[in-house]
């Protein structure tokens, strides 16, 4: 299962890089969302996949059984998803504001902060 998911991570990252190379800020943000999913999936795979048992301690035992899923990557991914969501929603509002105030979402047309030198 891991190799298949690793390939999926690769595809997600490739698509994300392609989107992020665009000069359109909205496409860049879509790329970021895609990249975030690829990264989260890679953390999940890094914790090794096992689907035999949920990570619950059986009554009477004190440790998890050998077949239990790794709970840590799930916690990490959950944190990363929440953070990624926050960043993405800020960035989307920023894109909207850029469209409103600057009249463009193309980054090469945004020259207000760094005006081109007039000779």
């Amino acid at each position: 299962m891991e190799p298949a998911l690793a390939i999926l991570v690769g595809i997600l990252v490739a698509v994300a890089v392609w989107l992020m190379l665009s000069r359109n800020f909205v496409r860049l943000l879509l790329g970021f969302a895609m990249l975030g999913n690829g990264v989260n999936l890679s953390i999940f795979v890094a914790g090794r996949l096992s689907r035999e048992a949920p990570p619950l301690v059986v009554e009477g035992e004190v440790v998890l059984g050998a077949a239990a899923a790794n709970a840590l990557p799930q916690a990490l991914v959950l944190t990363a998803i929440v953070i990624g969501f926050g960043l993405l929603s800020f960035a989307l509002v920023l894109a909207w504001k850029a469209h409103e105030r600057l009249g463009t979402v193309r980054t090469d047309e945004m020259r207000v902060a760094e005006p081109e030198r007039t000779p």
């Binding site: 800020f25 894109a95 850029a98 105030r101 600057l102 980054t107 945004m110 207000v112 902060a113 760094e114």
Partner: peptide, 13 residues
């Protein structure tokens, strides 16, 4: 301001 929005897009990206 406009300049801030412009700078923020690059900073954020």
């Amino acid at each position: 301001t406009k300049a801030q929005t412009d700078g923020a897009v690059k900073y954020v990206a």
